[in-house]
Write a protein that binds this DNA or RNA. Structure first.
Lengths: 213, 213
DNA sequence: TCATTTTTAGAACGGTTGTTCTAACAATAG
DNA sequence: CTATTGTTAGAACAACCGTTCTAAAAATGA
């Protein structure tokens, strides 16, 4: 028989990862349809057939790329959020870790925003259900925090899910803008802006002193 | 010679519009790459060659679709904004008209969010420069309003451009969510949420009474 | 009616690409 | 070493699609 030993298993994992990373960069550069399997094979230095033997099809390879990265993102964000005890701390962690991750993974950042969540299309224009659910689990985590904040009186009595949507969208807006800017943007400044704007809004407080920080 | 009379000109315009509308719906359903010129010709009830004689190529047709709709959106939004004299009124107009437009044009809504603004790729994944500029003109209009609001003391002293980005992103976030929701969402409620959140934030005002409305 | 222009249906062209296949080669286990 | 399995380079296949072309029909202006 052919019992793969440890090294062999490791090598296999490494190869998978290498192919996934390569595919990610090419999909990010060119988009799903422009990217070709030949390109990916070439850049990853594997034969075309090998890629197919590993991933079956272009679509599956693509899904795997997305799935892997979203899992990474979500685990990173939720993990960090759990570290903070306070509501405000957790919200800040969400903003901070999500934006940091997207900033550190520019290829993924592109993939992330090339996709739209339109379940009607189960094609390459939407996220696989598994991925969607993983992402939702992160949002639910945020919703719980916000809900707690409302109960504690830290947040105004709003719909927690809607508020989640707003904060998620706010972070997205800034991340998207990184795609355009040639010059190096200050990520830290953006994170602070998002947090502040989300908590206190744009309008000047009337006859009041805000608890800033 | 062959001097097209008025009716002929009108018919020509109507045809152009009909093809553009048809193309919009198909591009929205399938995305640029999946959509085929044959499909569009079939649905628009024109011969394939006729479409080509009108628009030259698939890419040009696509660009025209986007361009037309973005122009409509921007003119609609900026037009309505100009109607209001106050800063707060103009901000509300922006939120209201932009979201209303996107809600009333679900096909465009999809196209709008399938595209990402990545100037590095001058392919189908980005907006044509002309479109980008048009959209930017709308954002600049909003930036001016916010700048005025800052000077008047209505807004806190923030970077007006950054604040614009935030508000634009906030409206996008809610519009995107309409793509997913099977059930009819309350657009009015979403518009109010966006406005409130943008102006006053999510945190509870401390020792203060907010001027609500 | 006649000459001109538009439109049409569909064939045809040319290129691309996902996927499979083949035959040779390399690595591995026993 | 030998049988087995994994890998490779590249050919081959098959389908698709953007685009052009053709010949006929329809519409138009005079």
């Amino acid at each position: 028989m052919y019992e793969p030993n440890t090294r062999r298993k490791q090598e296999y994992k490494q190869r998978i990862k290498y192919i996934l990373d390569t595919a990610e960069s090419i999909f990010a550069e060119q988009g799903f349809f422009r990217a070709t399997m030949r390109q990916i094979a070439l850049k990853a230095e594997f034969a075309l057939g090998t890629i197919y033997s590993y991933f079956g099809s272009k679509k599956q390879l693509y899904r795997k790329v997305i799935e892997t990265k979203v899992n990474e993102l979500v685990d990173f964000v939720t993990g960090k959020m759990a570290e903070s005890p306070t509501v405000q701390g957790q919200v800040e962690k969400f903003v901070h870790t999500k934006m940091t991750f997207l900033h550190k993974n520019p290829a993924f950042l592109r993939l992330y925003f090339t996709k739209v969540d339109v379940p009607q299309l189960d094609t390459e224009h939407t996220w696989p259900k598994k991925v969607r659910e993983k992402y939702d689990s992160m949002l639910r985590c945020l919703t719980d925090v916000i809900q707690r904040g409302i109960q504690e009186g830290f947040f105004r009595p709003m719909d927690a899910k809607v508020t989640t949507k707003a904060l998620d969208g706010l972070t997205n807006a800034f991340a998207i803008s990184w795609l355009n800017s040639k010059k190096q943007m200050s990520v830290e400044a953006d994170m602070r802006t998002v947090t502040e704007l989300f908590l206190y809004g744009a309008a000047t407080p009337q006859k009041s002193i805000r608890n800033s920080k």
